[in-house]
């Protein structure tokens, strides 16, 4: 087993450590806490008065727009990271730089378009 696999096995085992920590603390708390549940206690909390209407309310579509924008730029970031790692070790440095500028430029134009359309105005 190489270093590579050992490192990723470690990451996986630490997921279990996190879950174990969670489970252990919840378990200890369960031993200490009282358990007397009533219908009123299990009702949805809304500042003390009885909950009004359905919780499944409509949310503004702007969240969706921001989520889409986020996906675009997040993927951009995922592409920039490997480029940033190797950009100094490639012989034709200017070509490497210009290529990335074109890539970032297209996204900046898109961001400017979104801004111009007023989608970032949150109204």
């Amino acid at each position: 087993m190489s270093d590579y696999y050992e490192n990723y096995l470690t990451i996986f085992l630490f997921v279990l450590v996190g879950l174990g920590l969670f489970g252990a603390m919840i378990g200890v708390a369960r031993l200490l806490q009282p358990r007397r549940q009533t219908a009123a206690k299990l009702a949805t909390y809304e500042c003390g008065v009885e909950a009004e209407g359905d919780w499944w309310t409509q949310q503004h579509v702007r969240y969706y727009v921001f989520a889409l924008l986020f996906v675009v730029f997040d993927i951009e970031a995922a592409f920039i990271f490997p480029w940033a790692t190797v950009m100094g070790s490639i012989a034709d440095a200017w070509a490497v730089l210009v290529e990335m500028f074109v890539f970032i430029g297209i996204l900046v134009v898109a961001l400017a378009y979104v801004m111009r359309k007023g989608l970032l105005r949150w109204m």
Binding site: I26, V28, P34, K41, L42, T44, W55
Partner: peptide, 12 residues
């Protein structure tokens, strides 16, 4: 204190 609090999961 938090450990001794009841763990309530709402009905809904």
């Amino acid at each position: 204190k938090f450990m001794q609090k009841e763990d309530v999961i709402p009905e809904a």
